[in-house]
Design a protein around this nucleic acid. Sequence first.
DNA 1: TTGAAAGCGCTAACAA
DNA 2: TTGTTAGCGCTTTCAA
Lengths: 338, 338
Amino acid sequence: MQPRKSRRSSGAITLGDIAAMAGVAPITVSRALNQPDQVSAEVLRRVREAVDRTGYVPNRMAGGLASARSRIIAAIVPSAVSAVFMETIDTLTASLFDSGYQLMLGQTGYSPEREEMLIESFIGRRPDGIFLTGVLGPGKGRTRLVASGIPVIEAWDLTPSPVDMVIGFSHPDIGRSVASYLLRKGRRKPAVIDANDPRAARRRTAFQQELAASGIHHVPVVNSGSNRTLAEGRKALAQVLALQPDTDAVFCSSDLLALGVLTEARHRGLTVPDALSVVGFGDIPSVADMLPSLTTVRVNGGRIGALAAEYLVRRTRGEAVEPRIVDLGFTIVERESA
Amino acid sequence: MQPRKSRRSSGAITLGDIAAMAGVAPITVSRALNQPDQVSAEVLRRVREAVDRTGYVPNRMAGGLASARSRIIAAIVPSAVSAVFMETIDTLTASLFDSGYQLMLGQTGYSPEREEMLIESFIGRRPDGIFLTGVLGPGKGRTRLVASGIPVIEAWDLTPSPVDMVIGFSHPDIGRSVASYLLRKGRRKPAVIDANDPRAARRRTAFQQELAASGIHHVPVVNSGSNRTLAEGRKALAQVLALQPDTDAVFCSSDLLALGVLTEARHRGLTVPDALSVVGFGDIPSVADMLPSLTTVRVNGGRIGALAAEYLVRRTRGEAVEPRIVDLGFTIVERESA
DNA sequence: TTGAAAGCGCTAACAA
DNA sequence: TTGTTAGCGCTTTCAA
């Protein structure tokens, strides 16, 4: 029976318990755990022994509160089921874990409202860094993020005025490059298949402008909605061909849509690339080895994740990081489909 | 110049600041934010006004420490790039976010050592629940998890003795079912392509046993290593055919490998399913609409995520949840490839 | 409906 | 190298 302990305790072992067992002060245990070289060998041994015996795991919420460093990085992606973003998340988590950080994940489902909510929720966690997919437009989310002082990486796009730092590539450049590429291949009746995604829309606009400059003003566009699936790609090609039966090239806003186009073309006996050129976006792992292999736009998602991790970790150490705008570029990977 | 504030403060607005602005005690602000109906309309108005004006976002680390509820759920998956797990993560994050929880993500890369490290790291965060892919064997990780008292869901497998609760399906049953299925289709020269994954190994073993019971004792197995890619599937089929040229069926441990097999078969002019039946595992979204469409084992990953979220949230509310073992089963989705 | 007091479990700052 | 003290920003407990 305790002498009226006025507050509940979780009952778990705390740093204080370890300190008592090792016969030292709590702060000494803290040092033994976090800066072992600042502690004598004997103390270190006793602390470790107590930790091993009890299975003590330090409470990082308490540590984070006291030190104002959570060792959490928050990442927001449009969708977890999309292979193209997960490559970034994969390298991001792996690199961060090696530096003692944990990743908190949120998905917007391509909804700006949900993104705002996520940003606010994440700020409440006081992460040491925030990774965003896409650049953040003006609004409450951006204001709060700036006010929070948390290092921010916007990725997967470029802007001259990032919240903090941006790592990505130019979507308009991609649109223009793909247009020139298809023109060079002698294509004169291109079409676009895209999904609900503002970045895809900017690729499309630039694509159309570039074609217009070469006298091609009519470019059918089919929007496949919010589902970036192979099935949608098949349906979309059917719609494209209904709009413009002699279409000779399709630029898709994602590889999965492009695979759908390839599939539907085969189904209809359309030869690729002779009758129809197909270009995707993302270069997800499987498309290089399909039949026909997919010509697509490669954007190095893994590199984005690794760079973002490196930058964020360095920022939390107080180092300044330059440059604040990193253009990783893209490549049109020429394969059989175009 | 402050009168010697002996401790650094993050400088950010705190609940105390809001309290001062609204002319109430800190605890009243806490109530206004967390249980608005326990506070008078007038106080609520003043608090909200102060929050809006300052852009105050409560510090959840502090709240979590004080209340011993972090509102974090930790999830460990083998790989973020695998579509099959991401469907689970997708529904898990979405459901949890709606209940005010955040997801912390870790990847093991199929390494048990890394899994142990992740479990220990995550316990330090004091999450309100932990989601694991696969059942946890005896070891330090399991001991600590049990000691921590944190609700745990093991998923994607079954065991009679879960740490806490398990939601999944039987891998041996899958192996046996696929074997019977192929036997019924008249296949007599099956092979297996799998990857480094203990669960896939159990499917394979049961598959072989079932075949042996029908007199088929020689079943070539090709292990494609750690990369579950389409390219590996292509290579693996080549190896299978080298081992057993008249192979008439292949059971793959993932859909991506199966797509590789389909691709390589087409490349070699092998007709599917006449000359070669192909069965995958996972039923990732695209495989239903390929040509030929893939016969595969469907395991409802989305349902696992939704159920796990529901269970964990209810557990954090102190509700008991039954049953502790949920077998979601699986279905062999018969399509064109087998 | 509101508040005062007392911590949650840890670490920064300073001192010895 | 080790310890003392004073919080980090919030919520629980108890009382009014």
